[in-house]
Each structure stands twice: as C-alpha cells, then as structure tokens.
C-alpha cells in the first residue's frame, strides 16, 4: 500500500507511467470520439419533439459531466498539495485546470448553440448556465493566479486554496435545476430507477461520456508529462531517458 502511495509521489515513476500509457490511450480515444460522434450524428434516432438539434446532447452532456468531475480532480490535488506539500500534487492540479476550462467551454458553447433553436435564445441568465460560467471562471482563475505570482511555491498554495473554496460551486451546479425554476431540464439519466431516455439514445450517450472521461485522462497525462519535462529538464533521470 505505502509503496503505491510512494510511487504516485515519484516524478520518474509518474513520467514513465504517462510515457507508457499515452501511445495506447491516444489512438483509442480518437477512434472512440469519432465513432461516438458518427453514432450520435447519423445512427441514433431523431427526437420526436426537438428534431435533429437534440444530437448536440452527445457532446454537450459528456462535456458538462466531465467538467464537473474534473473539478474534483483539481480540488483533490489542491488539498493533497496543501496538506502534505507533495510537489507532484500541485503539478497535477495545474494539469487539470486547462482541461476543465476546455470542457466547460465546450459545454457552454454547445449549450448556447442548442439553446438557440430550442429555447429561442443563445444565452439566458439561468441558474444552471450561470453556475457553469462560474465554474469556467474558477478554472481560468487557477491558471491566471498561478501565472500572477513570481514565487511558484506561493502560487501553488494560492491556487490550491482557490480550487478548494470553489468546490462550493459544484453542488450548486448539480442542484441548480431543482432549486430554481429553470429553462434547463433536469437529469434524464438516473442511477436508480429507469432513465427517461430510450436505449437507442442512451447507449451512444453513455459511450460518449466514457470517451470524454478517457480523453480527460489522456490530456491529464499529456499535461503531466509536459510539466515534468519542463521541471526536470536538468535531472539525471530524464536526461538518461531521453538520450538513451
């Protein structure tokens, strides 16, 4: 058990792990992303009420789901970095921020594009949408805050505190459609009881959610590898790896 914990804190081990997994995960994710998109765009049936504009669901929902899950990754890494002062944890926290920002941007942009033909407006200041916009600012805030400090140890600590405080926003996003009267519909997929969505639409949607998680993992490893290469450019272990 302690050996595993020790490995997660070891830069050469994490670098090696990313280096081994990326060549497999990259092609698998790209193929899954293309397959899932073609399935959702061309093979899933049309919605009887919304017509074909509903097909945006296959990217909108997965992006939003993983944007929220990604925040836990960032906040948890921030917590580990604050409490145990593990340098790799703040590298992980910074690796998660741009991915989360990109996913949140995708959710917001595709939501706006979906909103126009469905609600008649690109944007409404609705609880769900506004809290997602705050999530985007939190991700961007962590990136900007880290750049703002000259001393990177202080920067990492400030980012960790910001990401932990921002966790308050997550339950608000989840509950926003129940707490406030909202244009945004509540969740159709339920873990308990039957989902309000037919299997012919549910399977491609679940497939895309899994694919977006895999893409998050892939981007996380790429960003980690990038940061480690930058931080340990002078180290013996990396030089040996690269020149061997």
């Amino acid at each position: 058990m302690w050996r595993i914990v020790h490995q997660f804190g070891s830069p050469p081990w994490v670098y090696g792990f990313c280096d081994r997994v990326i060549p497999w995960l990259l092609p698998i994710t790209v193929v899954a992303l293309l397959t899932g998109s073609v399935w959702g765009l061309l093979f899933a049936p049309t919605d009887y009420k919304q017509g074909d504009s509903y097909r945006i669901i296959y990217i909108h929902v997965p992006a939003a789901v993983v944007a929220l899950a990604g925040y836990y990754v960032m906040a948890l890494a921030g917590l580990v970095s604050l409490v145990w002062r593990v340098k790799l944890a703040d590298t992980a926290m910074r690796a998660a921020a741009p991915i989360g920002a990109a996913y949140t941007a995708i959710a917001l942009i595709t939501g706006a594009i979906w909103g126009k033909p469905t609600w008649g407006a690109w944007w409404v200041w609705d609880a769900r949408i506004t809290s997602m916009l705050i999530l985007f600012f939190l991700y961007v805030g962590v990136i900007a805050l880290f750049e703002a400090y000259e001393n990177k140890t202080v920067a990492a600590r400030a980012c960790a505190i910001l990401s932990l405080v921002g966790t308050v926003n997550i339950p608000i996003i989840y509950k926003s459609v129940d707490w406030w009267y909202s244009l945004h519909q509540p969740a159709s997929i339920k873990f308990t009881g039957s989902s309000a969505i037919d299997a012919s639409m549910l399977y491609p949607l679940l497939g895309m959610i899994i694919t977006f998680y895999a893409l998050f993992a892939l981007l996380m490893m790429l960003n980690l590898k990038q940061s480690l290469t930058e931080e340990y450019a002078q180290s013996a272990w990396l030089n040996k790896r690269l020149t061997a």
Binding site: L41, S53, R55, I56, H60, A102, T110, I113, W114
Partner: peptide
C-alpha cells in the same frame, strides 16, 4: 447548429 457545435468541439479538443 448541429454540425457547428461538433465542429467547435473538435477544434477545441
């Protein structure tokens, strides 16, 4: 709308 949304998503990814 639909193709545009997918296009922007793929560009960001």
């Amino acid at each position: 709308f639909v193709w545009g949304a997918y296009g922007i998503t793929f560009l960001i990814v």
